[in-house]
Design a protein around this nucleic acid. Structure first.
Lengths: 156, 156
DNA sequence: ACACATTAGATTGCACACAATTTAATTGTG
DNA sequence: CACAATTAAATTGTGTGCAATCTAATGTGT
């Protein structure tokens, strides 16, 4: 920075810039790295995340899936429709509360889980770090994410 | 491979899942957290990144900007056209090499830099971590990103 | 019971990301 | 010099993300 005065604020300004960009560009790289490994399953990375959530527990509402993935219905509704068209999930209204749509797995969707087991194994190698490093990095990111989410509320 | 395999496969499988999701969801949170702070400038987060690159150096090719942000012309061309329509940048063919498009700043785009100085300061607080933490987290992410990028090449 | 607020999803509109393809300009090689 | 290979942008098509809005169903307070 050509007009730098060397004060702390100036360098922090750049630092926070680079941290956010490190997160942003790494996230893009994650999606790109998953793509060839998910191609065999015919899934995108966000679709894969939804399937992981459903493999852990079937018959969740769109809202519940959205809470777990921090995605809203504007993102999930079309994504879920594509998974339904692909024959992997079912969508049906909850008879108890007609506002809700319950997302379930088809036999094909349930069966895909076995083939999907290989994906995280390959990705673990792609990340190229130890489990301890991954664990600590993960917890640092979650902390930061929660800080960011909290800061958004303060701007409203 | 430095990762444990065998019966540890189950936990590693989950672990790498959660790490990638931590990156993914934190990146989404970054974009959402920037949004209210960039609204005053009328910029999106990716547009802001492009402006930061141009504030550091004017008259870069689309390719050079793409290399710095890891974005291709399919993303940048429409984004740059929006910045041009907003009166912030200029686009002109390089007379030396007619394949290239040089991106410059308008006076308005140059002037926006002053107002933009407040953004990273506010975001530094939103991240809620020390400069040391941010610095180490940043370098860990960059290392992992480079590992991921390298792994993509191996799948081709 | 009834007006009002709240909630869950769907829809619309806009802006990325990125693969794949196309076009035009430049470079490398014989 | 010729011409194939390479390069830089633009274009096309698909799939997210998310704000804003809409509809329908549920909750609530008096």
């Amino acid at each position: 920075m050509e007009n730098a005065t060397g004060n702390a604020q100036e360098s922090q300004l750049k630092l926070s810039n680079f941290l956010c960009f490190a997160i942003y560009s790494t996230a893009n790289a994650v999606t790109r790295a998953y793509q060839p490994r998910l191609a065999a399953l015919g899934l995108t990375y966000p679709q894969y995340l939804v399937m992981v959530v459903l493999w852990e527990q079937e018959n969740q509402t769109v809202k519940a899936i959205g809470d777990k993935l921090s995605l809203d219905s504007g993102t999930l509704t079309p994504l879920l429709k594509r998974l339904e068209t692909a024959g992997l999930i079912t969508r049906r209204r909850n008879t108890v509360d007609e506002r809700q749509v319950l997302i379930g797995l088809t036999n094909e969707g349930r069966k895909m889980r076995e083939r999907a087991e290989a994906v995280p194994v390959a990705m673990g190698q792609a990340f190229g770090c130890s489990m301890d490093e991954a664990q600590s990095l993960r917890s640092e990111l979650i902390t930061m994410r929660d800080n960011l989410v909290a800061s958004i509320g303060e701007t409203k």
